[in-house]
């Protein structure tokens, strides 16, 4: 049997202490991704450190920031009155992910850490640089309909599959990480990585670190927002392309704007050039179209995912349209 030890802990400190003791240990949160990966033989941790009893489920406003604990479930966050009122974009993005059953157990930390859904990554009989560096990328010349068009590397063209993370990237969130020495805080947009030469690394979490919460500044983006997820069926499917859009309108003039895309890169893809273009401009279709065009700089298809080159800008335009018509 591929045995593993199951440990349960109730504090951040002891969780990290356990992690430090054993290189091949992993945190177990909702388990909706980790257990699948273990079943498929993609990962085989020797220790599972159950962190579900660590008190990190808080959802609260402190000063002008909303704090969400790493163990708050996707459902708890999406349904929370504070989130619905002040960060509805996040609530919508969460609702667009997975299924109700999964969201009930999936956690914020686990969602950030979930691995790609690339079919080659999951099949241990296939080549995959992410699972086993050096074996090649099965998707590059294979089935890459779901794969990235931005920031790809020769080693890996996988996408990060999360919806929540797209919204958090757009909302200028920060991630608080705990380690043996204390805590550190990084911008959410810097949490995930591009594949580059190290496709095995999805993010910048260090081996001895734990995600403890995300912090999101309160904003004026709760009126005109939309999370648009285009997928192969109406629910319970990963994004072909998704767009998180939110802006502040004053006399039809965009005074603040956030745009991020999912399903297009190895990390949630913030559309800074489009944001800069739209800032100070009228919320018109032609401006939206120009912004969408700007977003596509550097995009590259790999065959089966070429359609994303058209779908992505279209989705940006439609998300902006829907955000505009929301208020």
């Amino acid at each position: 049997m591929i045995n593993f030890q199951y440990l349960r802990t109730t504090s951040v400190k002891s969780a990290i202490a356990l992690l430090l003791k054993d290189k091949n240990a992993k945190f177990l949160a909702g388990g909706t991704n980790l257990i699948d990966l273990m079943k498929r033989g993609v990962t085989a941790p020797e220790k599972l450190i159950d962190i579900n009893h660590v008190p990190l489920k808080q959802i609260e406003q402190i000063g002008n920031k909303i704090h969400i604990g790493a163990l708050a479930t996707n459902t708890a966050v999406a349904d929370h009155a504070l989130i619905k009122e002040k960060l509805p974009l996040l609530s919508w993005a969460l609702q667009a992910g997975a299924s109700a059953q999964l969201r009930n157990v999936a956690t914020v930390g686990g969602n950030m850490m979930q691995r790609t859904r690339c079919g080659y990554f999951y099949d241990t009989e296939m080549p995959c640089n992410k699972r086993q560096p050096g074996t090649g990328c099965g998707a590059m010349e294979g089935f890459n309909r779901m794969h990235a068009i931005f920031g790809t590397s020769e080693k890996c063209i996988a996408v990060h599959p999360s919806d929540m993370c797209v919204a958090l990237t757009a909302l200028d969130a920060e991630v608080v990480l705990a380690n043996g020495k204390g805590e550190r805080k990084i911008a959410f947009k810097d949490f995930h990585r591009l594949a580059g030469d190290t496709p095995q690394l999805d993010n910048n979490l260090k081996a001895d670190e734990m995600i403890i919460r995300v912090e999101i500044p309160v904003n004026n983006l709760a009126k005109n927002y939309h999370y648009l997820k285009v997928r192969d069926r109406a629910s319970y499917a990963f994004a072909l392309v998704s767009v998180a859009a939110a802006f502040e309108l004053n006399n039809n003039k965009i005074t603040d704007i956030r745009l991020a895309m999912g399903g297009v890169a190895h990390k949630p893809w913030r559309l800074t050039a489009s944001e800069n273009f739209l800032k100070g401009k009228e919320a018109t279709l032609s401006n939206f179209e120009k912004a969408a065009e700007l977003a596509m700089t550097g995009a590259k298809g790999f065959g089966e995912n070429n359609f994303k080159l058209k779908l992505a800008p279209n989705t940006i335009i439609e998300a902006l349209n829907l955000a505009k018509s929301k208020a």
Partner: peptide, 9 residues
């Protein structure tokens, strides 16, 4: 994936 003869999905 016809290169391998294996199902992907």
């Amino acid at each position: 994936d016809h290169r391998y003869g294996r199902y992907i999905n």
